[in-house]
Amino acid sequence: MSFITTYCHIRNNTYSINGRVQVFDENKKGFSGTIVDIYRHLELKYPKFHKMDLLAKTAFIGSELLIQNQDFSTYEDDEIAQLFANSESSEYSDFKFQESIQNGNPSPSQFVYTLPNILMGEIALKNKWYGENLFLVLPKFNAKEIKEQIELLLLNTSKAVLCGWVDVTKKEINAFFFVVENYTNKGEKLTEENLLTLYNN
């Protein structure tokens, strides 16, 4: 049996850990500013963060929130898998890169972020994780598909999976992050129902 051992949400101007809304100093307006405010609030010092696009920044903050609340040190460097999913792929940066073409100067730094799996590369790089990575694009949050893929990862060489549903568009951020582990008895059982409940939490 696998368990969802910790989770968090980032939604536009708020974030919560295990369902508890967190209070933080807001400086910047707009949800792209909120991500930077959370970064400051967590006192993270990771210069590469500032080069990331909004999708990768959001996923990176989500991963840091989970890592701060969860002990991953018992796992080998290739036993932690990453599974991320959304509906829009890298659309936020796709539009930015398209604009850079229209402005006469295609931007290589924006082009790199026009692949959704790059965010897992950022998290792997930060944590020196050599595990499996999977990015799914689904029409909407789908607990059945996500649960299936988590279970497949745990059947093979992975012992924990850091997961995220990260919708980042021009209009909103709707992100849900969670950790699934085997060999534990805490948290919620990994079921479709629990995933959906926590997603909507």
Partner: peptide, 29 residues
């Protein structure tokens, strides 16, 4: 077009095809 460029692959593909299970997209570069 940029909007829904990837998910449109599935949305168009399933039209007229009686899949019992939803096709999924893997996008790992």
């Amino acid at each position: 077009g940029v909007e829904n460029a990837l998910i449109n692959v599935v949305k168009r593909f399933v039209v007229g095809k009686p899949f019992k299970n939803q096709p999924i997209i893997i996008s790992n570069a």
